[in-house]
């Protein structure tokens, strides 16, 4: 028996109709194997937290398409309503990148679970503040201290500006935050704190300046029902981080694509919709103040 007779696939001796069916089956098998190989390319998973107005689904979809085109690999956004879930996903290595708040970043970076990828530049600077807001009908309140015995809305346990800062400010004033307010509740997002204050459900709340400013442009009817009483010092803008196991190439590709968004009209348009100037290089020193406060609160 010749060698070729062992290795050449030949259809069984059968009718012409059966031969046609055999070749058709063989071709389909080849195609499906190839397709399986294509789908095996793992998408890049990016976690999104309420640091931005994450209900802008259409914008996120456009951004996802943009990144996918630039990177040449599928991109998936993973939106979660609270930081804790995103932190857990990062811990479980289920996310490649994530846009997270200062608190989760400092926490995860402390345990070397993430690396700083880019720092968003907002109004020309890589900073944001915490705004103390009250209902616009409240014309008297001038500081957090005056909200004694009132209802206060927090963002969530792992929010820096929406939970840690107000408690830190009260601590600085020598006040026990757990007894200061008559009632507190969590809304799980900065936007919802703004809504709670706007509706009058809460007498006050503290939110990310970026979210408030963004909302004042896309939902002026909500932000107009609130009044900014005080603005905190500047803190490093919530960064985009990479999981510690992300490859060097993936890290540098993503960093380059984000930082070069200002170089094409589509990227500029997306940045404009995100209310950002651009994505700048990583600046870890910006988050030292946050780290210090967290250490004070024994969160690290």
């Amino acid at each position: 028996m010749k060698f070729s007779e062992y290795f050449i696939i030949r259809p069984p001796h059968a009718s012409p109709r059966f031969k046609t069916a055999f070749w058709l089956w063989f071709t389909l098998c080849l195609i499906s194997t190839n397709a399986k190989a294509l789908t095996d390319v793992q998408p890049i998973r990016i976690g999104i937290t309420p640091v931005i107005v994450h209900e802008q689904y259409e914008l996120l979809n456009q951004w996802r398409s943009y990144l996918q085109n630039k990177l040449g690999v599928p991109v998936e956004f993973v939106s979660r309503d609270n930081y804790l879930e995103t932190i857990n996903l990062l811990k479980q290595r289920k996310l490649d990148f994530a846009w997270i708040a200062d608190f989760p970043y400092v926490y995860l970076e402390h345990y070397h679970l993430v690396r700083l990828l880019v720092t968003p530049i907002y109004q020309g600077r890589p900073f944001y503040r915490a705004y103390l807001i009250v209902p616009s009908s409240d014309l008297l309140t001038r500081s957090l201290i005056e909200l004694n015995g009132k209802v206060f809305a927090y963002v969530e346990f792992d929010s820096f500006s929406g939970y840690l800062i107000p408690r830190y400010q009260l601590q600085q004033a020598g006040i026990d935050s757990s007894k200061f307010f008559r009632k507190t509740f969590f809304t799980l997002s900065h936007r919802k704190v703004i809504e709670a204050v706007a509706h009058g459900l809460a007498d006050g709340g503290m939110v990310d300046s970026f979210v408030w400013d963004a909302l004042s442009k896309i939902h002026k009817d909500i932000s107009d029902n609130t009044r900014i009483v005080a603005k905190s010092q500047e803190f490093g803008f919530p960064p985009i981080v990479a999981g510690s196991l992300v490859s060097r190439k993936k890290f540098s590709d993503m960093q380059r694509v984000l930082m070069e968004m200002t170089k094409d009209p589509e990227g500029i348009q997306l940045l404009k919709q995100l209310q950002l100037d651009k994505f700048g290089p990583p600046l870890p020193e910006l988050y030292l103040d946050v780290k210090r406060i967290m250490i004070d609160f024994e969160d690290l």
């Binding site: 009908s137 209802v151 009058g200 459900l201």
Partner: peptide, 12 residues
Amino acid sequence: VACAYPKSAPLL
């Protein structure tokens, strides 16, 4: 506990 129009019936 909550009101759809909190200003007309504040919490608590």
